[in-house]
């Protein structure tokens, strides 16, 4: 299981990558693995807003549903429509092609609340 060092994580199993004033959000390798084959994903509209710790979408496997919780607050500036048509990408490349939304941060401080790769990995092991 991979935990890229350059990302930040949430306890709800989302990852965040900083790209200037915008952050990219997706779900972790651990999340896709526990869900199993992803068959459906629901994402917000471009131009909409997301709020930290509030649901912004849904991922579904054949027999499970999982809410996506936003790690940050801000405006959605881009949505990865490609994964809506090919949700299997979430299983194949969770940290790359399967990014979900790009958010323009309202409050950069929120990033400080996120976990580092080591912290997240440790959290998962405890959860097991």
């Amino acid at each position: 299981m991979e935990f890229p060092k350059d990302l930040k994580y949430t306890k709800e199993h989302e990852w965040v990558r900083e790209e200037g004033s915008v952050v990219v959000v997706g779900i972790t390798d651990y999340a896709q693995d526990s869900l199993g084959d992803v068959v459906y994903v629901e994402l917000p509209q471009e131009g909409g807003s997301v709020t930290k710790d509030e649901p912004f979408g849904v991922v579904e496997s054949v027999k499970a549903v999982s809410d996506l919780y936003s790690p940050v607050t801000g405006n959605v500036v881009e949505v990865n429509d490609a994964i809506i048509d090919s949700p299997e990408v979430i299983n194949d490349d969770p940290y790359g092609d399967a990014w979900m939304i790009k958010v323009e941060l309202s409050n950069a401080e929120e990033l400080n609340d996120l976990l580092s790769a080591e912290e997240y990995q440790k959290y998962i092991e405890e959860e097991k």
């Binding site: 084959d37 068959v39 459906y40 579904e60 054949v62 949700p87 299997e88």
Partner: peptide
Amino acid sequence: TARVDETRAAR
């Protein structure tokens, strides 16, 4: 019928 591909059915 052998094991059924339920993932494909949903995708």
